[in-house]
């Protein structure tokens, strides 16, 4: 199921924070048209994988290709929503301002937003159900509404690759269901949709594919194939066993 669009190919990706190695020799394929979750224990390098793919880390090496070209040379096709802790919600911007930011690259330098950009922003806001709240300061929305506003920003961007880092933190059940529904729609449109998720609870069933990490790649592919006892043991309990065996 590729919908004629291409996958992301990652080869031998390594990443480090200062001297601490965060990702070790990760190679995998990310399919378009499938909702892909990145899961693993705390400190497994889930967010690091996203950031390293997009060139947001200075100390990352490896090859990341999309459409047979390095992904980092076509970042205008990427929409990335960082963890909520990375965003200053006291910033003086309305929901409308935030969604229009998604049109920045499409508009180009030294130009103001076109009528088409405004229409795209409006359509995106209507799609996530926040059109009525467009004039609210972003800080006055609930956590779930804020995530939907950021989702609207990435939809307005008309990207091919969507990356969300922990979008469900601080989000209630209802908003989580809305977000999963919209992520699924994007995937069915043939987009690459990557979601970092630290929760292995029932919400995991929403994903088509999973990437299971523990600094190294444990498993990647169809959810049912990835979620077996051996893989989970290697991701969540493996290190303890390893040291016991070595001793």
């Amino acid at each position: 199921m590729t919908f004629g669009t291409s996958a992301i190919h990652i080869h031998h990706l390594n990443a480090a924070y200062r001297s601490v190695r965060a990702l070790q020799d990760v190679s995998l394929l990310i399919q378009p048209g499938r909702l892909t979750g990145i899961v693993g224990p705390n400190g497994a390098g889930k967010s690091t994988l996203l950031k390293a793919m997009l060139g947001l880390l200075p100390n990352a090496v490896g090859s990341i290709c999309y459409d047979d070209r390095p992904l980092q040379q076509q970042l205008e096709r990427v929409a990335y929503v960082p963890q909520r802790s990375q965003v200053d919600f006291d910033y003086p911007a309305t929901v409308w301002d935030v969604v229009l930011m998604g049109r920045t690259r499409k508009t180009g330098w030294f130009r103001s937003f076109s009528a088409a950009s405004r229409r795209a922003a409006q359509a995106a806001l209507e799609r996530v159900g926040l059109w009525d709240l467009r004039d609210r300061p972003i800080g006055q929305l609930s956590g779930g509404q804020q995530q939907r506003a950021f989702l609207a920003r990435s939809i307005a961007q008309e990207a091919d690759i969507f990356c969300f880092d922990e979008p469900f933190v601080g989000v209630d059940r209802r908003n989580e269901a809305i977000l999963f529904e919209l992520f699924g729609e994007l995937a069915r449109d043939g987009k690459v949709v990557l979601v970092v998720n630290h929760d292995l609870g029932e919400s995991i069933a929403h994903f088509d594919d999973l990437i299971l990490l523990n600094r190294q790649l444990v498993a990647a592919g169809d959810r049912a194939m990835v979620l077996n006892d051996l893989n989970l043991q290697r991701a969540y309990g493996g290190q303890v066993r390893f040291f016991q065996e070595a001793a």
């Binding site: 950031k51 997009l54 060139g55 947001l56 970042l75 205008e76 990427v78 929409a79 990335y80 929503v81 960082p82 990375q86 965003v87 200053d88 910033y91 911007a93 301002d97 935030v98 229009l100 930011m101 920045t104 690259r105 508009t107 330098w109 103001s112 937003f113 920003r153 961007q157 990356c163």
Partner: peptide, 18 residues
């Protein structure tokens, strides 16, 4: 608009290629 995006969400702006 570039400064707006970048001062609000530096990582998002960087990921979009600014």
């Amino acid at each position: 608009k570039e400064l707006h995006f970048y001062t609000f969400d530096r990582l998002g702006a960087q990921a979009a290629g600014l």
